[in-house]
Write a protein that binds this DNA or RNA. Sequence first.
DNA 1: ATGGTCGGCAACCGA
Length: 258
Amino acid sequence: MKFATFNTNSVRVRLPVILDWIDREQPDILCIQETKVQDRDFPAGSFEAAGYRAVFRGQKSYNGVAIISKLPLEELHLNLYDSEDEQARFISARIHEIPLINAYVPQGVAPGTEKFEYKLRWLRDLLDHIRDKYDPGRPLLVAGDFNVALEPIDLYNPEGSRETAGFHQDEQAIMREFFAWGLVDIFRKHTPEAGHYTFWDYRIPNALKRKMGWRIDYILATPPLAEKSLNVWIDTEVRLLEKPSDHTFLVAEFHDDI
DNA sequence: ATGGTCGGCAACCGA
């Protein structure tokens, strides 16, 4: 079973890149974030033509998440809070017997701001949701853009980023509660080395070449699934295109019996 | 040399 996650920064602009990628890589499931499209304009037909079904939750201009899958999706949930006006950052489903959450965590701007407090609250609420609804002894996948780097090896300028959103101890403390509950960061499980990133800021010129990135996208799995992950890798090809994306595909291959 | 990123969407906001 092949699983991937990708922050698209507009699913409509990135559609050719995504269609090329799924045609070549043939993932069973792809989680995307920052689709930036209202549901009525989501390009579901393009994915259907490629042999995938899509479930999505969008809003105007910002945020938006979707699951693209070769297999049927059941028990679909489109809200973390079950409120009409919440931001489109959460989508969950069950595929075969595997429950899956796709999350786009708020970026948070800067520690001390209202938006940073919102980020911490949203992360805690996601954690509480997982603790309420799931069992760490059973399969669960949680994937997406968490907008948090955990360790100094996960970003290019750790010492200069202690007061920056994305590397602050308050957000890291919540992330570590996901791990304490039982979720495993399966990229890190397979790759202990420093300097593997999934995001490079557009505002830094030649950030990829200068190795000025962050690892803020994750595939988390409970132990029964983490044990079946065969390989997890970051596909930087989308950063080498003429019109690069700011995030990369993060891909996991699991043993076929799941 | 006198700038320097994207994308959405219509003036800036968010990342």
